[in-house]
Design a protein around this nucleic acid. Structure first.
Lengths: 163, 163
DNA sequence: TTATCTGCAAATACTTTGCAGGGAA
DNA sequence: TTCCCTGCAAAGTATTTGCAGATAA
């Protein structure tokens, strides 16, 4: 699979300076406090960055977009693990061996899918799904409980078709 | 995710001895010859092993099941890459960072899905899909070409529910 | 003050690759 | 004989972990 797409350098997270200058929204930090997790500079910076992304982003991508890389890569891994456990982010795997994450809105289970270009890795968000009955049928037919699914689409995006 | 399941040690590939003792079926080796690829001992042993598996198996799993591990791990990686390119095997990712492979019958595109237990990693093969129209709708709505999809189900298998 | 968190560095896991010798056609 | 393939070892990439110092509450 191709690269990470472009570095969409929005001013709100690229003006440099220390981590302390990047307070995340109360909505986000309160979710941490509610679970008695500490609101640290690194976590605020990561949450703030995730807020600006419209598609799943890899851990290395997060690390490289953080101001002057002053949050350790290991800390990004640990933070994403924590946030995933708290259901504040959702993990996606597009089959290239790299995990990608999206911020979940409060109360949102984040259930949606992606259409990924196999040439340039550009991503379209897909709302439609309609697999609920299929999950139920799986559960009934095979006796499984708590059935979920992962569904991703792949293809060649319009721009890559022209090249 | 848990382990690899049990080592289902069928006699037809566990009686020890050199690789030369494991001729694969003509159906399989001919597919190699047709593409002017060499029918080597390692490839025959791998194809033979894949023939006996009813669920996707990891590269390490293949390596460990090969008689006395005398085929190099790197060779298994290279062979699976080759076989995937020849569409003789299909690659699956269940989200634990390990690729798994299934042998494809000649002429079979191998399109089916899996229901994976998130506790013991046991697998049920799912034929039903019915996503063809959905792919077409994706293509029409977003201008993508050659749209495919990956769909896997996850849940807790009956045995794990009892524990 | 105290338990949590972070940076640093080392370790682990999966996969790929360079090279020289071995083997299939 | 000629390339292709293999084993071995080293390297690359993604991720995890131990530990001591830093920090939020």
């Amino acid at each position: 699979m191709g690269g990470e797409g472009h570095h969409d350098c929005r001013l709100d997270h690229c003006h440099g300076g220390g981590l302390g200058e990047h307070p995340a929204t109360p909505e986000l930090t309160n979710r941490l406090r509610r679970k008695s997790r500490r609101v640290t500079g690194a976590r605020q910076a990561i949450l703030n960055l995730l807020r600006t992304q419209s598609h799943p982003i890899s851990i290395r991508g997060i690390f490289e977009r953080l101001p002057q890389g002053d949050c350790d890569l290991a800390t990004v891994y640990r933070s994403m693990h924590l946030l995933e456990g708290m259901e504040m982010v959702k993990r996606y795997e597009f089959g290239d061996g790299v995990a990608r994450f999206e911020l979940l809105r409060d109360g949102d289970d984040g259930h949606h899918h992606h259409l990924v270009c196999t040439r340039c890795a550009s991503v379209v968000e897909i709302e439609e799904c309609g697999m609920g009955q299929l999950e139920e049928r799986m559960a009934a037919a095979y006796g499984f409980a708590a059935v979920t699914h992962k569904l991703e689409f792949f293809g060649i995006c319009p721009r890559c078709q022209g090249v």
